[in-house]
């Protein structure tokens, strides 16, 4: 029994990690700028499509048709020559193989730019306007982003292979001293979890141990006073928006091998991660992370057959059910501070 429960716990981790990463970015934006960003899921999707683009560029090939030779189907043979391999040899093959993790390097600057442009271009004008209007404008932006992606990449999911060395499963049970082959877990999911933990740890360390982070935390607590001290808090908050976009983008890149991205990936995750943020408590970073993992794991337990036999359909609604109960019983969420958006 223990191994079944442990396995479900592990299964919940990777989804929980994705929720936690998106919710972390949402909370960063809400905590600093006070903006409810419905376009955050779109940033996750944009990150995923950065990975798609990188792979497309790396696997570009020249096609020459050789009329002399015939393919087994009788048509003239097409000779495809991958460009990157042609230029770089084996190193090119390695690049293609590791395209997903490599695209993080390109995603970071792109998402930083996208985030800063979004904040300076549009969201800046919405600080003083009601939350309803912030929701509406970011919701509109999310539609625009997903439609642009749809018209460029088409409506179908585009699978992204993971690097060949990282396929397969790790025998965690044996590692922990149990019998072999009872608890096996796909390596990439493990990597995703570790990656999420590193990113989350990085964001917390950045806020906790750097001067920049200290100023941002001070600004989150009392924006006006920090402004009165002569610190340009707006600029720092803009950078935090960019950082939130980067976190969402990286989460999207690393998630592509687990779920082939398509244009409504962002919307699918957005609703859930908003629920996560609310459960964790608006504006609380630890709350967002904890609630992300909690809901991911709960969802994985709810999809066990034993549980479904007791409460049919629970796997479909568990997250929303938990959110409704938490909001009604404890309005500021699990970790929310007193008085922040409490109503």
């Amino acid at each position: 029994m223990f191994d079944v429960i442990f396995l479900q716990f592990l299964n919940g981790l990777d989804k929980g990690a994705a929720y936690a990463l998106i919710a972390l970015g949402l909370t960063l934006v809400f905590g600093t700028l006070g903006v409810v960003n419905f376009a955050h899921g779109a940033l996750f999707m944009l990150g995923a499509f950065c990975a798609v683009t990188v792979r497309m560029l790396l696997t570009m090939e020249t096609v020459t048709i050789d009329p002399e030779q015939l393919s087994p189907w009788g048509s003239p043979l097409e000779i495809r020559e991958p460009l990157v391999q042609a230029w770089l040899g084996d190193f090119g093959a390695v690049l293609v193989n590791y395209s997903v993790p490599l695209s993080i390097l390109i995603t970071i600057p792109i998402m930083l730019l996208v985030g800063i442009a979004l904040e300076r271009g549009i969201i800046k004008h919405f600080y003083k306007r009601p939350h309803a209007e912030q929701i509406l404008v970011t919701f509109g932006l999310a539609i625009v982003a997903q439609e642009v992606i749809k018209s460029v990449f088409g409506p179908n999911p585009i699978p992204q292979p993971m690097p060949t060395d990282l396929r397969g499963a790790a025998d965690i049970g044996a590692f922990l001293g149990m019998q072999a082959n009872i608890i096996t877990y796909p390596i990439w999911r493990l990597i995703y979890f570790v990656f999420a933990a590193v990113v989350i740890g990085g964001v917390f360390a950045f806020l906790q141990f750097t001067t920049f982070g200290m100023v941002v935390r001070a600004g989150m607590a009392d924006r006006e006073t920090v402004g009165l001290l002569g610190i340009n808090i707006d600029r720092r908050f803009t950078i935090m928006f960019g950082l939130a976009a980067v976190v969402a983008g990286m989460a999207g890149v690393m998630y592509t091998p687990l779920l082939p991205p398509n244009y409504h990936l962002g919307m699918d995750f957005l609703v859930l991660s908003f629920v996560v943020v609310v459960v964790g408590g608006m504006g609380s970073l630890p709350g967002a992370v904890a609630a992300g993992f909690l809901l991911g794991i709960l969802q994985s337990f709810a999809s066990m057959n034993q549980v479904k036999a007791i409460v049919p359909g629970i796997d479909q609604i568990i997250i929303y059910l938990v959110a409704v109960i938490i909001l009604l019983v404890r309005p500021r969420g699990l970790f929310g501070r007193r008085g922040v958006m409490e109503a």
Binding site: A132, V275, Q316, Y320, V324, L328
Partner: peptide
């Protein structure tokens, strides 16, 4: 029982629950 953004999320949660249930158990 809640207002503002919480009200929006609650209604969203209920609607998604109905939608998911309509597709599965119901």
């Amino acid at each position: 029982r809640r207002s503002g953004i919480y009200f929006s999320i609650l209604t969203l949660a209920f609607a998604q629950m109905s939608y998911n249930l309509a597709y599965s158990v119901l």
